[in-house]
Computed example of a mutant assay.
Amino acid sequence: MQCPHFDAARCRSCTLLGRPYAEQLAAKAGHCADVLGERADLQWISPAASRESGFRNKAKMVVGGTAQRPTLGILDAEGTGVDLSDCGLYPPSLQACFPVLAAFVGQADLTPYDVSRRSGELKYLLVTESPDAELMLRFVLRSQEPVARIRKHLPALLRALPQLVVVSVNLLPEHKAVVEGDREILLTDEATLRMSVNGIDLYLRPQSFFQTNTEVAAALYRQARDWVDERGPASLWDLYCGVGGFALHCADPARDVTGIEVSGEAVASADLSRHQAGLGRVRFQVGDATAFAVGAASAPELVIVNPPRRGIGDRLGRWLESSSVQQVIYSSCNAESLARDLLAMPSLRPRRAQLLDMFPQTSHYEVLVLLERA
């Protein structure tokens, strides 16, 4: 992928952009294998490659400049906005909406937040695109002051972008290095964005998490589903389930499936999918994954875990080790924390693994590992 911003050193977020893609993929596979260590009984499946460009389904655009001449992209070392509306990581359909959004910033007089002066209102525009090219837009603001102006001009924006189905405001009053705050104000009647993955409808609410690369996420869910179906467990937990991607893919009339997620927004989304699909033996519950497992009266036959970068932690690892769980499918975005977690459950041996390139042009990746009780 050729990028004028990388070549001009305006943006170096794609740290591997100068390397051929095949070389990137091989290096990631080698790194992951090195971190997990030599394991004679571990079978590595061929890596799941991604498109090299146009693969991102979401954009986190820092808003810089002025209301009348905003930049959508990043800030440089001096805090000046660098416009990345033409970034090659975004598909053309997503790129096409950015000029419309920039014009709306001026129309609604949304002053970009100045980091150095700690003044202004609009911090980010967060845009997510579904496989059907529908959009969710979130304005991350410092306060509610501009909300009335956004509401006033929103009908014009919806006419200009008819694919825009969900719009909200997120309030982030603090000056700190996070993308969003706790409070969300919905501005449209529609509250969810439908993401169809492998023929299964997942629903995103404004504060729900979904993988950045829809095509590779689909491959991730298919591989986990295949491993589950091969083993045919009667009971399964999906811990850190998010909007229910793994749980819904692994649903079966002969299987009890429970998804646990700390985000109430994500559980509401997963429940909507479950209800629409008529899955009577699938349930979702708001809760901490570790607390749920440790406090459960009995264990399932198989557990899927998809934790954040820090991993599942020692307490959940020790519980899995001492439990009657026969198989664990571990989806990790951080091989180092995965390797550390494996030490806490030595009886659960890695048997199969696959690297999935969720983040081309960077050193990041996802790895899926099947563990079986020795």
Score class of each variant (00 low, 15 high):
residue 319 W to Y: 07
residue 271 D to K: 11
residue 15 T to H: 08
residue 333 C to T: 09
residue 259 G to L: 03
residue 28 K to Y: 05
residue 285 Q to G: 07
residue 272 L to M: 10
residue 155 P to Q: 05
residue 117 R to C: 07
residue 164 L to R: 01
residue 20 P to V: 07
residue 152 K to H: 13
residue 46 S to F: 02
residue 63 V to L: 11
residue 363 S to Q: 15
residue 8 A to S: 13
residue 145 E to R: 10
residue 221 Y to P: 10
residue 125 L to K: 06
residue 230 E to S: 09
residue 314 D to C: 10
residue 169 V to W: 02
residue 227 W to G: 07
residue 129 E to N: 04
residue 152 K to C: 12
residue 315 R to W: 01
residue 272 L to C: 04
residue 278 G to Y: 08
residue 121 E to N: 06
residue 296 A to G: 04
residue 228 V to G: 06
residue 218 A to S: 11
residue 194 R to A: 15
residue 70 P to G: 02
residue 238 D to N: 14
residue 57 N to Q: 13
residue 305 V to N: 05
residue 270 A to Q: 07
residue 46 S to A: 15
residue 86 D to H: 05
residue 272 L to Y: 00
residue 342 L to D: 13
residue 299 A to I: 10
residue 57 N to H: 11
residue 109 D to P: 02
residue 366 E to D: 14
residue 201 D to P: 01
residue 300 P to F: 07
residue 363 S to N: 10
residue 114 D to F: 04
residue 276 Q to E: 12
residue 353 A to G: 14
residue 108 A to H: 01
residue 10 R to W: 03
residue 293 A to D: 03
residue 224 A to E: 14
residue 65 G to I: 02
residue 143 S to L: 02
residue 238 D to I: 08
residue 40 A to P: 06
residue 104 F to M: 06
residue 211 Q to E: 14
residue 219 A to P: 00
residue 57 N to R: 07
residue 332 S to D: 10
residue 340 R to H: 06
residue 190 E to D: 00
residue 361 Q to C: 11
residue 216 V to G: 04
residue 187 L to E: 12
residue 69 R to A: 15
residue 112 P to D: 14
residue 298 S to V: 13
residue 142 R to N: 07
residue 184 E to Q: 08
residue 337 S to E: 13
residue 135 L to R: 00
residue 63 V to I: 13
residue 127 V to K: 14
residue 246 F to G: 08
residue 67 A to H: 03
residue 98 F to E: 08
residue 274 R to F: 06
residue 280 G to Y: 03
residue 110 L to F: 03
residue 247 A to D: 04
residue 113 Y to M: 06
residue 107 Q to M: 03
residue 38 E to N: 09
residue 67 A to C: 08
residue 67 A to L: 05
residue 178 V to W: 04
residue 340 R to V: 08
residue 192 T to S: 14
residue 142 R to C: 10
residue 274 R to V: 11
residue 63 V to C: 11
residue 42 L to V: 03
residue 329 I to Y: 01
residue 138 R to W: 01
residue 313 G to I: 05
residue 9 A to N: 15
residue 23 E to S: 15
residue 358 M to D: 02
residue 88 G to E: 07
residue 96 A to H: 00
residue 48 A to G: 11
residue 121 E to H: 05
residue 305 V to K: 06
residue 5 H to M: 02
residue 345 M to Q: 09
residue 209 F to Q: 06
residue 224 A to L: 14
residue 22 A to V: 10
residue 165 V to G: 05
residue 265 E to P: 08
residue 192 T to G: 04
residue 254 A to G: 13
residue 163 Q to K: 09
residue 190 E to M: 02
residue 292 F to H: 13
residue 260 I to R: 04
residue 101 L to D: 10
residue 26 A to I: 03
residue 369 V to K: 03
residue 56 R to M: 09
residue 253 P to N: 05
residue 289 A to H: 00
residue 115 V to M: 14
residue 136 M to G: 06
residue 321 E to C: 04
residue 359 F to N: 00
residue 234 A to Y: 00
residue 239 L to N: 00
residue 179 V to G: 12
residue 264 G to N: 06
residue 85 S to Y: 02
residue 264 G to H: 01
residue 65 G to Q: 02
residue 81 G to Q: 06
residue 148 A to Q: 04
residue 31 H to K: 15
residue 82 V to A: 13
residue 106 G to H: 09
residue 163 Q to V: 04
residue 172 L to K: 05
residue 119 S to D: 09
residue 251 A to Q: 05
residue 147 V to F: 02
residue 1 M to K: 10
residue 8 A to E: 11
